[in-house]
Design a protein around this nucleic acid. Structure first.
Length: 424
RNA sequence: GGAGAGUUGGCAGAGUGGUCGAAUGCGGUGGUCUUGAAAACCAUUGUGCAGCAAUGUACCGGGGGUUCGAAUCCCUCACUCUCCGCCA
């Protein structure tokens, strides 16, 4: 959620940025907030002075009672009735204004950073760098779902039986390879100072709101009605919410966490080749890195995180490309996002395996995640990135390392898998 | 699932109708002492909102009520803890 101060000071700038970069017109909403905020402040001044009057009278009455001047006290009491009525009315106006403002605020996404290219859809994303792909090398390569069946690594049908489409069952070396990847990712992150966390997979409503999934993406999360809990769509939610309502010590920056969790997404409305095999699942595994930083350091941190994710892909020897998301494809809560995509030779397409974002104060404003900078209390910056999402890594890895007889495991993973080949 | 207890400032913990935004301790910050550190001592130290400021106002889990006046009384919801039951 944007801060109200930003709208007070830079209303037109915000409208223009959203318009130019995200290609959405929120001028009505922003202007409305601006006006309502003015009204709210006026109302508050009125309310405050009424309260002050009442407080004064009350203490006078108290004094009179103490001195036994009951009659005088009673006559003052009569005066309070009018003020109390006024306060009640003003309060109502005030809280109505407040809730209208809050509602409108939930409609406004983060303001894109100046580096974000303008654009409407994923087609307008900027390709920052890319591995060379020689398609001739992959002419006979088959997609991962064929490999999974051939070598009995992942059973999609079985998942349909016990849960539904999008819930695959990993088997034997398939399951082992998955576990190896998780361990590899966790180890790598730990080694460069991310503290490992194992967090709940169900979260409450407050947490969903804190990181911005609610109310924006309500329909994308699984919800347990009886207990009013949400299955996490990413580890970002529980991990970042650890710092909800927390005053961080400035010396603790940067705060770095890594966590592995399964992720649950309803993915309503997806279909076709997008959901084939491991391309898009309702449940998948992901290792996530989260950082909380001083506002002045957050973009430095973002670059560092992107580089880290790239280093993982390089160690796995997977061809990948780096995208800078355009305004239209940028997440609701993000100010700047880089996506990493790996190449899938069996499908001849790029698959998103990581999204690294700086949310600036958008989340921390909701979370009330702050720190003391000298005497001033300021909002921290939050960032996170997938490092990495497993299924598409698995897809690319199986496809790219295939040969006629089987699949070779990348060198770096062999200590984790305990085998270097998958064959029948 | 049944019974009971609780929720107060960064933390611990007092306060049961009127200078209580809140004692006290710990922690934090500044200082004295010291070659330096520790200890000790002194001072200072909650957050939001409005305001250029002085200041005002709100906040003792959330919401509502009683009262001239509520951390304190009443209702309600949420959460936490303890015991019993069930159980990986």
């Amino acid at each position: 959620m944007l801060e109200i101060q930003k709208i007070r000071e830079n209303k037109d700038f915000i409208i223009n940025r959203l318009n130019e970069v995200r290609k959405i017109d929120l001028s009505d909403t922003v202007n409305k907030i601006y006006k309502l905020d003015e009204q709210k402040r006026e109302t508050q001044q009125k309310l405050d002075s009424s309260q002050a009057q009442l407080n004064l009278l009350s203490s006078q009455i108290g004094g009179l009672f103490k001195n036994g001047k009951i009659e005088e006290a009673n006559s003052l009491k009569i005066q309070t009735a009018l003020i109390k009525d006024q306060i009640k009315q003003t309060k109502e106006v005030y809280s109505k204004l407040e809730s209208s403002i809050d509602e409108l605020f939930c409609l406004i996404p983060n303001v894109p950073n100046e580096l974000v290219p303008s654009g409407i859809s994923e087609n307008d994303n900027e390709i920052v760098s890319s591995s060379e792909i020689n398609k001739d090398d992959f002419k006979s390569f088959v997609p991962h779902w064929d490999l999974c069946q051939k070598y009995n690594l992942i059973d999609f049908e079985l998942g349909v039986k016990i849960s539904g489409a999008g819930f695959p069952v990993y088997k034997g070396k398939g399951a082992r390879l998955q576990r190896a990847l998780i361990n590899f990712f966790l180890n790598e992150a730990s080694e460069i100072g991310y503290q490992e966390l194992l967090v709940p997979h169900l979260v409450n409503e407050k947490s969903g709101f804190g990181t911005g999934q609610l109310p924006d993406k309500e329909g994308q999360m699984y919800h347990t009605e009886k207990d009013n809990l949400y299955l996490i769509p990413t580890a970002e939610v529980p991990i970042t919410n650890i710092y909800r309502d927390v005053m961080v010590n400035i010396n603790d920056f940067p705060i770095k966490h890594v966590g592995y969790t399964p992720c649950f997404r309803r993915e309503a409305g997806s279909y076709g080749k997008d959901v084939r095999g491991l391309n898009r699942l309702h449940q998948f595994d992901k290792v996530e890195v989260v950082q909380i930083t001083h506002p002045e350091k957050s973009y430095e941190t973002l670059n560092e995180m992107v580089k880290y994710v790239e280093s993982l892909l390089e160690k796995l020897e997977l061809p990948y490309r780096k995208l800078k998301l355009c305004g239209g494809d940028l997440g609701f809560t993000s100010a700047l996002t880089f996506d990493l995509e790996v190449y899938s030779p069996g499908q001849d397409r790029w698959l998103e395996v990581s999204s690294v974002s700086n949310f600036e104060t958008f989340q921390s404003n909701r979370l009330k995640l702050r720190f003391k900078d000298g005497k001033k209390t300021k909002l921290a910056h939050t960032l996170n990135g997938s490092a990495l999402a497993l299924p598409r890594i698995m897809a690319s890895l199986l496809e790219i390392n295939q040969d006629e007889k089987g699949i070779s495991i990348p060198k770096i993973l062999i200590p984790f898998t305990g085998f270097d080949r998958i064959e029948n």
